[in-house]
C-alpha cells in the first residue's frame, strides 16, 4: 500500500483537486483516488506531482510502514 502527502501539499499550495489534476494532466477523480490511497499512480504521474509540489518523489509517496523521507 502506498502512502502519500498529496492532500496535505495540495492544501498547502491552495489547489483544488481539479486544479491539481489540470496541472498534471489527469481528472479530478484520479487526484481523489490517489489522495485516498485507492490508486497508486504511475512513475510518470508521481514525478509530475512531485514537480508541482517541489519535492522529491519519495517525500510525496512512500510504502506503508516506512517513514517518509
Amino acid at each position: 500500500m502506498l502512502q502519500n502527502r498529496v492532500k496535505e501539499l495540495r492544501a498547502r499550495y491552495g489547489f483544488s483537486q481539479g486544479e491539481l489534476g489540470e496541472r498534471v494532466g489527469v481528472t479530478r477523480q484520479t487526484i481523489a483516488f490517489i489522495e485516498k490511497g485507492e490508486f497508486s499512480p504511475s512513475v510518470t504521474l508521481a514525478l509530475k506531482l512531485a514537480r508541482e509540489f517541489e519535492v522529491k518523489v519519495d517525500e510525496l509517496f512512500w510504502l506503508e510502514g516506512e517513514k517518509p523521507s
Partner: peptide
C-alpha cells in the same frame, strides 16, 4: 479512459 485513474 481519459487518464490512468479512469483506466484503473
Amino acid at each position: 479512459e481519459e487518464d490512468e485513474g479512469m483506466i484503473y
